[in-house]
C-alpha cells in the first residue's frame, strides 16, 4: 500500500494511459517540426524525394486505380437504380461527380493509401531501426530524420493528391462505362450534366486541398510510428498496425472537420 502510493507520487505527470492520445499528438507535432526544420530544397534532397515518390506512389497505383474503377461502377449502379424511379437518370454523372470529388475520392484514396503505402513506410523505417541502420546513419554523422524520414513524408504529401486524381479519374470512367455503355445514357447528357452541376472551385479544388492534408496526416503517422517503433520484429508489427488504425481514424475525423470548414 505504502509502496503503491510511493510509486504513484514518483510517476512523472501525464504519463498515464489516459493522457496517451494527447501525448502522441503532441509528440507527432514536435516530430513534424523536427522534420520540416530539415527541409533544404537541395538537389540531393529532391532526388531522394523523387525516389521515394516512386516507391510510395507507384506501389499504390494498382490498388488505387482498381479501387477507383469499382467505386465508380458501384456509385453509378446505385444512383442509376434510384434515379430510374424518379425518371432522372441523366443526373447520374452529377451525383457521381459531386459525391466523388468532395468526399469519396479523397477519403477512400487516403484509406487505401494508408493501408498500402503508409504501412510499408512504417515497416521500412521500423526495420531500419531494428537492424540499426538508423543508428549507423547517425554514427556516420548523417541525420536519419533528414535522410530517411523527411523524403518519405514529402513523397506522401506529393503522391496522395496525384493518386486521388487518378482514383477520381478511374471512378468517373467507371461510372461513364456503366451509365453510358451499359445503360445507354447519351454521353453528351452525362458530361453536360456533370459540367453544369459540379463546381470546379466549390467541389473539385476543395477536395484536392483535402488530399494534401490527408497526405500529410497519413505520411506523418507512418513515419512517426516507424521512427518510434520498438526495435524488434514484434515492435515493427505493432507499429504497422497502429499506422493503419490511426491514419484511418484521423482521415475520417479530419474529413468531417474539413468538410464542415469548407461548406
Amino acid at each position: 500500500m505504502n509502496q503503491n502510493s510511493d510509486q504513484a507520487s514518483k510517476a512523472p505527470p501525464f504519463s498515464g494511459p489516459r493522457s496517451a492520445p494527447i501525448r502522441h499528438i503532441g509528440e507527432a507535432g514536435i516530430f513534424l517540426f523536427r522534420i520540416l526544420a530539415r527541409l533544404r530544397f537541395s538537389p540531393r534532397q529532391w532526388a531522394e524525394v523523387m525516389r521515394q515518390t516512386y516507391f510510395v506512389g507507384i506501389r499504390s497505383l494498382v490498388i488505387i486505380m482498381t479501387g477507383g474503377l469499382f467505386v465508380g461502377l458501384v456509385l453509378a449502379l446505385q444512383t442509376y437504380d434510384v434515379l430510374t424511379d424518379f425518371g432522372a437518370t441523366e443526373a447520374v454523372g452529377t451525383i457521381v461527380g459531386k459525391s466523388l470529388y468532395r468526399e469519396l475520392g479523397p477519403v477512400l484514396a487516403a484509406l487505401l493509401f494508408a493501408g498500402r503505402a503508409g504501412t510499408s513506410i512504417t515497416a521500412e523505417i521500423g526495420l531500419m531501426k531494428a537492424t540499426e541502420q538508423l543508428d549507423a546513419l547517425d554514427l556516420m554523422a548523417i541525420d536519419p530524420i533528414e535522410r530517411i524520414v523527411l523524403p518519405r513524408l514529402v513523397a506522401a504529401v506529393i503522391s496522395l493528391p496525384i493518386l486521388t486524381l487518378l482514383f477520381d479519374m478511374l471512378a468517373i470512367l467507371g461510372s461513364y462505362l456503366f451509365a453510358v455503355h451499359w445503360m445507354g445514357l447519351e454521353q453528351g447528357i452525362y458530361w453536360s450534366n456533370m459540367q453544369s452541376h459540379v463546381s470546379l472551385y466549390k467541389e473539385f479544388f476543395p477536395g484536392l486541398m483535402k488530399t494534401v492534408v490527408f497526405g500529410l496526416v497519413c505520411g506523418l503517422t507512418a513515419v512517426y510510428y516507424g521512427y518510434h517503433a520498438r526495435p524488434t520484429g514484434e515492435g515493427v508489427g505493432i507499429a504497422t498496425t497502429q499506422t493503419v488504425i490511426i491514419s484511418s481514424i484521423l482521415v475520417l475525423i479530419l474529413d468531417f472537420a474539413l468538410s464542415a470548414l469548407m461548406l
Binding site: 537492424t131 541502420q133 549507423a136 554514427l139 556516420m140 554523422a141
Partner: peptide, 20 residues
C-alpha cells in the same frame, strides 16, 4: 561539432547495419 567529430570515429554495429 558532434557531427564533425563522428567523421573521425568509425563504428561497426552488431549486425553490420548495411543499408538494405
Amino acid at each position: 561539432n558532434l557531427k564533425r567529430f563522428r567523421r573521425k570515429v568509425g563504428v561497426l554495429l552488431q549486425n553490420g547495419a548495411l543499408f538494405t
